[in-house]
Design a binder for these strands. Structure first.
Lengths: 207, 207
DNA sequence: GTTTGCATGTAAACCGTTACATGATTGG
DNA sequence: CCAATCATGTAACGGTTTACATGCAAAC
C-alpha cells in the first residue's frame, strides 16, 4: 500500500515520543497562517481576510467566521494579544499582534517538516469515473478545466503587476511570496499543457 | 477580488432555482465516488477501501469509518441496495449495488461541471511564510518536497506495471483511469522540475 | 438610493480524522 | 507465535463551510 494516507491504520509507533508542549502537535494550519500574517505586522480580522483574498487565496483560504473564532482561540492561548483602536466615522478595529510565545510557535511551525497528506483533486476524481459517461462529457470537463486554468493564470498576471514590486522594508517577506507565486504559476502552466494534450488526444481518438 | 473562494460572501442570487430533487445539490463528493465505484460492479465496504488504496488514493481517500457510514446513508436514500453474502471461514460480506436511482444520481454528477473551489496546498502555504525564517529552512522544505515527489513518481511507476494492462471487459472504464494516471504523472513530473529549479535558484542566491 | 467598503461576529451543519472495538483464518 | 488479511462497524473530536446578523459612511 502507498505510504500517503495513514487513515484509520493503527499507526506503527513512531519514535517521536518527544511530544511538543502543545504548540506544534500537528493540525491547525489556519492557526499558523494567522500567526504568520501577524508575524509581518499587527492586523485586524478584517485585514487578515483581505490578506487571504489578495495573496493567499490560491493556496489556502478561510471565511470570516473561521478567522474571528481562530483569533479568539489564539488569544486564549496567549499566542496573540489585542487592542481596540477607536475610529471615527467607521467601526472600531480590534488589532492583534504576536506575543513572544506566538512568535516561538510560528518559528517552530516554520521549522518542522510539512506533513505529507494526499491532496484532494475534484477534477481528476471526476475524470476518473468518466468511463461511465460519454467521451463528449469528458471532453467538456477537460475544456472547462482549461478555461479555469486560463482564468487563474490571468488572475496571477494581474496580481503580479498590481502588487508586483513595490518597495518594502523586510524584502525577504516579499521575496518568498514572489517565489511561491512564480512556483504556482509554473504549475498552472504545466497543468494547462497537460490538459491541452489530453484534449487533443481525446479529440483524435473520438474522430 | 478573485472569483475563487466564495466563502461567507452572501451569494449574488444564482439563476438556478431549479433545485434538484435532492440528489445532486452540491457537496458530498465521497457519496458520488462510492456510487462511481459501485457503478463498475457491486462491492462491499472492504472492497471500496481497497479500491481507494489501490487506485484512487492519489486523488482522494477515505477511512473505513467514513466509507461504512456513507454506505448506510446511501442505502437510506435508496441510491444503493445491499445483500449479505454468507461465507465460511471468514466474515460475511455486505455487498452493495447501485439502484436505478443511484445510477441516475451518478449520471447527473458526471454530467455537471466540477465546482471550482480553491485547493489547499500545505507546502506552498508553508513556503509563503519562509521569509520569516532562514533560507536554509526554506531549502530544507524544498528538498523534502523533492523527495516526496520522487517517492510518489516511483509509486506511480510501480502501480502502472502492477496493474498496467490487464484485459478487461468494459475497457472504457480502464481507459479513463489510465488517462487520469498519466495526467497525474505529468503533473508530478512538472512539479518536480519546478522544485528543482527553485532549489537551484535558492542555492545560487545564498552562495 | 443602492451598492460597496468597513468592521465584527454567532449558530449550525457538514466533512474528515483518530481512536476504539471485535474476531476468525492463513502464512511466515 | 506473530503478523497480516478479511470484514464491519461506533464514538468523539476538530476543522471547514454556509447561512445569518448588524450597522454606519462614502461613492456612484
Amino acid at each position: 500500500m502507498p505510504d500517503i494516507a495513514p487513515y484509520d491504520v493503527p499507526r506503527e509507533d513512531t519514535q517521536d515520543d518527544i511530544r511538543e508542549t502543545g504548540a506544534a502537535n500537528g493540525r491547525g494550519t489556519l492557526h499558523y497562517i494567522i500567526l504568520g500574517l501577524l508575524g509581518a505586522h499587527p492586523m485586524s480580522g478584517y485585514d487578515i481576510k483581505r490578506a487571504f483574498d489578495r495573496s493567499l487565496a490560491t493556496y489556502w483560504n478561510a471565511g470570516n467566521s473561521q478567522i474571528y473564532t481562530t483569533l479568539k482561540a489564539l488569544a486564549g492561548r496567549k499566542l496573540v494579544s489585542s487592542e481596540t483602536i477607536q475610529q471615527e466615522g467607521r467601526p472600531n478595529r480590534r488589532v492583534y499582534s504576536l506575543t513572544p510565545e506566538g512568535r516561538a510557535a510560528l518559528d517552530a511551525w516554520l521549522a518542522e517538516p510539512v506533513p505529507s497528506r494526499f491532496t484532494k483533486d475534484e477534477f481528476l476524481t471526476r475524470l476518473f469515473f468518466c468511463g461511465q459517461t460519454s467521451d463528449a462529457t469528458a471532453l467538456r470537463h477537460l475544456e472547462e478545466h482549461e478555461d479555469a486554468l486560463h482564468a487563474q493564470l490571468a488572475d496571477m498576471e494581474r496580481a503580479l503587476s498590481d502588487y508586483g514590486d513595490r518597495p518594502s522594508r523586510r524584502p525577504r517577506l516579499l521575496e518568498y511570496q514572489m517565489l511561491v507565486r512564480a512556483y504556482k504559476q509554473a504549475l498552472l502552466q504545466a497543468d494547462l499543457e497537460v490538459t491541452q494534450t489530453a484534449i487533443a488526444d481525446l479529440k483524435a481518438r473520438v474522430r
